[in-house]
Amino acid sequence: MENDRTTTVPSRLRVGFVGAGFMAYVHSRAARAAGAAIAGIASSSPGSAARARDRLGVEQAYASAQDLIEDDMIDVIHVCTPNATHLALAEAALKAGKHVVCEKPLATNVQDATHLAELAAEAGTVATVPFVYRFHPMVREARERIASGQTGLISTIQGSYLQDWLLSRNDDNWRVDAGVGGPSRAFADIGSHLCDLLEFVTGDRITRVGALSRTLFSGRANHKDVQTEDLVAAVFATKNGAVGNLLVSQVAPGRKNRLMIEISGSESSVQFDQEAPETLWLGKRAGSQLLIRDPDALSPEAARLSVLPAGHPQGYQDAFNAFAADTYAAINGDHRDGLPTFRDGLRSAVLTESIIQSSKRAEWIDVPAVKELEGTHQ
């Protein structure tokens, strides 16, 4: 069945990937679906890049990231490497005049994130961060209902992002290491998605936070002195007067990727659950309902992102594909609503640092505003 609401663009941009792990697979599928040429890949070694080239169907493996970045035939660089490397790689790509897609967190501290956001604004190239949960159609539907006033005056916001992949002491990953992943783990890794989604859907900003964090294991299989947190709980206030709470955990048994937000207003509540992304719960004092994704019954932006007919489930990869397509559309001069830029990556770094400070000091922290940046795309 044909669908004229496609997010795919006709571009044949030539894209290159730095990194050969899970996220490189996701990015490459999204780039291919968006019509790009999968032109190059670099990894931690030439051998790793060659193996990834064969697995992902990439045209060429490069001996180093710098060789890839400096190739004039490459239009867009996707940075899919450990967090601590993002600054140097994104900076090099921007200085080489490339468009950049950098995995989150954009950087491991506010200073570095600010530098990258300013550099991107000065360069005038498109620079995005894959806060891809924005691209679920039912997230856009929730956003439109709140923006149009259907939900009424927002009073409370709650959200959680729960996983269990680091539940055991024997579970380990490079993200556990603060030197590689940064000073925050659970919040920087998944709490960043949660807060981005809460602010994106409500159009509001978190202004004060009070947080608690816990590290359950001081040592794991390959890391003997773990400094990064396994979970974070926080209460917060927003610019428009709402109050809220959030819970982020990578040690919640049975929860694989449960990102949930619920926003309550004077007229109704809306709830989105990423593990059931085809529906939106609309809570009312009388007659609550479960709205099922149907392009013919959704707001324009939600319908645009509904690339499959009703009854044909869409999920995470579809959201990622839409993010890549909108990034490439922006490169071609078609700037679509809701595209997360490096400025959004900076906002995430500011929130992460505020959460860390609040937990360490055991006190409320005022969240600094992100200053306006000069530049076309930021």
Score class of each variant (00 low, 15 high):
T6W: 08
T7F: 03
V9I: 07
L13D: 06
V15T: 11
F17G: 01
G21I: 04
Y25A: 14
A49N: 05
R53G: 00
R53I: 00
L56I: 02
Y62M: 07
S64T: 15
A65Q: 10
Q66L: 10
D72T: 02
P82M: 02
N83Q: 11
K95D: 09
G97I: 04
N109L: 02
Q111A: 15
A113D: 04
L119S: 01
A123H: 06
G124S: 04
V126Y: 08
P130L: 08
P137L: 07
P137K: 11
I146N: 05
I146E: 03
Q158V: 12
Y161R: 07
Q163S: 12
L166M: 14
D171T: 04
W174H: 13
W174L: 12
A178V: 05
G179P: 13
G179W: 12
A186G: 07
F187Y: 06
G191P: 02
S192G: 15
L194W: 09
L197I: 08
T202Q: 09
G203R: 09
G203Y: 12
R205C: 08
S213A: 14
S218I: 08
H223V: 13
Q227I: 00
F236C: 05
T238L: 05
K239R: 15
G244F: 09
L247Q: 07
V251H: 00
R258Q: 03
G265N: 11
Q271Y: 00
A276P: 04
P277Y: 07
P277G: 13
G283D: 00
K284L: 02
K284P: 00
R285V: 00
L290K: 13
D296W: 02
S299K: 14
P313G: 07
Y316C: 07
Q317C: 12
D318H: 13
A324L: 04
A325P: 00
Y328G: 10
A330Y: 05
G333I: 01
H335W: 13
R336F: 09
D337W: 08
L339M: 07
S348F: 02
V350D: 01
Q357V: 11
S359D: 09
S359P: 04
R361G: 01
A369S: 11
E372T: 13
G375R: 02
